[in-house]
């Protein structure tokens, strides 16, 4: 995991989300949210362009049965992704080990984004 800002990838190269952003996930009943926050304005543009709701839905395929919606938080250079029917019934009913989707932010962080044209 690259945590040194000087090693941030060039926008003309593909990048993993983790190299340009941070993220945290949690639950509300059977809904999951993943908040992703860009490290800087350029990273925010990359997320805005390439980390779409569809891309996140694809990454969470097999875990999320419902829809993924993306909401911007430009004030913190962030996006909030909300997924419905995401946790096999949620907190109490879910048969998953991770009943609350706490580890799912890490899935989104491992997404590879193409170069920013």
């Amino acid at each position: 995991m690259s945590e040194d800002p000087t090693s941030r990838p060039d926008a003309s190269e593909s990048t993993r989300v983790v190299d340009i952003a941070r993220a945290r996930s949690g639950d509300k009943a059977d809904c999951l949210n993943v908040g992703v926050i860009a490290d800087d304005a350029l990273a925010y543009r990359r997320l805005e362009t390439h980390l779409t709701a569809d891309v996140v839905a694809q990454r969470l395929d097999g875990l999320v049965a419902g829809e993924v919606t993306r909401y911007p938080l430009a004030n913190i250079l962030g996006f909030n992704f909300v997924a419905t029917e995401a946790l096999d019934g949620g907190g109490q009913a879910s048969l998953r080990y991770d009943t609350q989707g706490k580890t799912y932010a890490a899935i989104v962080l491992e997404t590879t984004l193409p170069p920013l044209e």
Binding site: A23, R24, G26, D27, N33, L73, N75, G78, V82
Partner: peptide, 27 residues
Amino acid sequence: SEQLVYEIGDPSAYLTPDVSADFTTPT
């Protein structure tokens, strides 16, 4: 900022009985 986005839905309307808070406004 990581905690601001924790367990929220639509960030422009965090609903409570007293106010609908807009999480897209603070700096």
